[in-house]
Design a protein around this nucleic acid. Structure first.
Lengths: 341, 341
DNA sequence: TGACGCCGCTCCCGCAAAGCT
DNA sequence: CAGCTTTGCGGGAGCGGCGTC
């Protein structure tokens, strides 16, 4: 910087001013300085700036790796929202589950000196770690945490999981299904337990027989295993006529298992998924599902983070933003057999 | 830090030594200092450290967003490899295509003061930008760039795309197919053009009739469009009996289109994909494909970056590491009809 | 507009005490 | 015991900007 100053024949803080408050410098000197900067290819040193201003211009993202569709989509949108606001983005993926890993990752981010953190890991224990950590930097948790309790430093945004589950189940009910199974995801996931809870609610409200087929994970393989295991039951008269799968991959596994077992979808059983992953539309049959607005979620998270940084009080609600999912009707659901007859 | 020093009754220098070179300070003082650190909850300031050492302990990842399976898997593995080596990871996604965007993103990372950059964007123009930028920090490009020319600062690692294409096409040939189409991906992608080039080679070597059906992208929708458009041709006697799709999503779209058109896979036509995405195994029929070792690629990239930082000379080859893909045989390919008769 | 101090840390050097020949 | 190295620790400068006077 002093090189630039020397070349432009001014002092180094004039250079600094040109960079930070251009209007405080007379036009001609400003241009002279700018020219010197260009000629020397001068670039400000981020570390020095961070040290002097106590702001790193970096936000941290705490996530669970990109193996999962929802979190990975959200990270993407957070990243672009952050960068468009001039922030660098530092990503930290949870290597393993468990509170200690979450705690370490959080501490790592704080140590790095991030100006804020967005948590894209809809896991109950991660949310708890954040709550209890009482972090010194603003944190926004992107998850439909039922225990969300905004504080000075931590806020919440989410896609309304319950509304999504309701969309799916009520759609099935409208099709005449009276016996519906839910293949639930990992119960350590907030999303999974929210969807399950609302599945129960809606079934209850409508006097629907509700079956629960828990899966061992979110992957197609897990849905496949459940499908094989429940095939017998589904073929029987007492079996469910529709299934609400906790996500699309599970639905895909289910479809595959049913196909192998000679159970036709949607004639013998209807299946609806969640998330609208790319391949669902092209599956055979194409999979009806509930789409979550992950792009908006990232933006909302970034906005919420900014408002915390500005010292704004919580908006009053438990969430700074609640986004609505959308029902996508395709070919994997049909009217219940009994209605047809 | 001076607080800690005061509390432990030592100088700030000793505290620094405890943190950096513990063995240079006597056990009892070291413990005293450590205790003071714990009691005060002291954490080193990263920005100050970066300023003083001229090392940010951060590596940058330049990628194209996580919409694509390969890059996103690679980013994941790079991230974990980097963090296990004690690096923070700053991610910058290309918002748009084009050299200027790539240039900006690269500059942004450099400005931030990263210690190295790993490029996970297998695009020709991105690779060119990196080459021409003659960056001041070590860069590793994870792409099978045919023009790879390792320099002092930039190195290459890759999965052997040509070997992968060969695996797929020779498998089809072994099944007796003599007329094979390749649905190629975006030709701005290095991977796509490498696979296409090798498809031509292998076809040529084996006296195979090679058809090329370019797709407008990597998505299932693109494969679907091609499938619809080529259905007529495929049904005819002169049509290909097998298709090598540039990736699994395209293969999925193809399968869907064929299903809609009453073309049976694999009876009427064989289809093989590339990448082995999660849903491929559960598709109907399950999709034969070529798996790329993305996890190893990330590690290899990180290793290469470390070796550049250490000032090691290039290994001699054009790539620091060339990883081998693997053929995954499933249900979407069958012997050619002519062989069966 | 310019001069000065400071952000928090690391590195270079210097000094003292202890151990060696 | 002189003269040396080794070990353990402290003082001060400076990294490259920013803020106040």
């Amino acid at each position: 910087m002093s090189d630039v100053a020397a070349r432009a024949g001014v002092s180094h803080q004039t250079v600094s001013r040109v960079l930070n408050n251009p209007d405080q410098v007379r036009l001609d000197t400003r241009e002279r300085v700018q020219q010197a900067i260009d000629e020397l290819g001068y670039r400000r040193n981020g570390a020095a700036r961070a040290l002097a201003t106590a702001r790193s211009r970096t936000i941290g993202i705490l996530t669970i790796g990109n193996a999962h569709f929802g979190p990975s989509s959200t990270v993407n949108s957070v990243e672009s929202a952050a960068r468009s606001r001039g922030y660098f983005v530092s990503v930290s993926s949870l290597e393993s589950s468990g509170e200690s890993a979450a705690h370490r990752a959080l501490a790592q981010l704080v140590d790095q000196g991030v100006d804020g953190i967005i948590v894209v890991a809809p896991l109950m224990d991660v949310a708890q770690v954040v709550e209890r950590a009482a972090p010194s930097v603003p944190v926004v948790v992107a998850a439909a945490n039922p225990n969300a309790e905004p504080t000075k430093m931590v806020r919440y945004v989410c896609v309304d999981q319950r509304a999504g589950a309701r969309l799916a189940v009520e759609y099935l009910i409208r099709l005449g299904h009276r016996k519906i199974a839910h293949v639930s995801g990992l119960d350590s996931w907030i999303d999974a337990s929210e969807r399950l809870a609302e599945f129960r609610n809606v079934a209850n409200e409508n006097d629907i027989e509700a079956l629960e087929f828990p899966a061992d994970g979110w992957a197609a393989a897990d849905g496949y295993a459940v499908g094989l295991q429940r095939a017998e039951q589904i073929r029987s008269e007492q079996g469910p006529t529709a299934i609400f799968a906790a996500n699309d991959y599970i639905a895909q596994g289910l479809l595959r298992a049913f196909w192998e077992c000679g159970i036709r979808v949607p004639q013998d059983i209807s299946v609806i998924g969640f998330d609208d992953v790319e391949s669902s539309e092209y599956f055979i049959p194409s999979i009806s599902t509930v789409r979550q607005p992950f792009d908006l979620l990232g933006q909302a998270a970034m906005e919420a983070l900014t408002s915390v940084q500005l010292g704004d009080a919580p908006t009053g609600g438990r969430f700074e933003a609640v986004l609505e999912p959308e029902l996508i009707v395709r070919g994997s659901c049909a009217p219940a057999p009994s209605t047809q007859s």
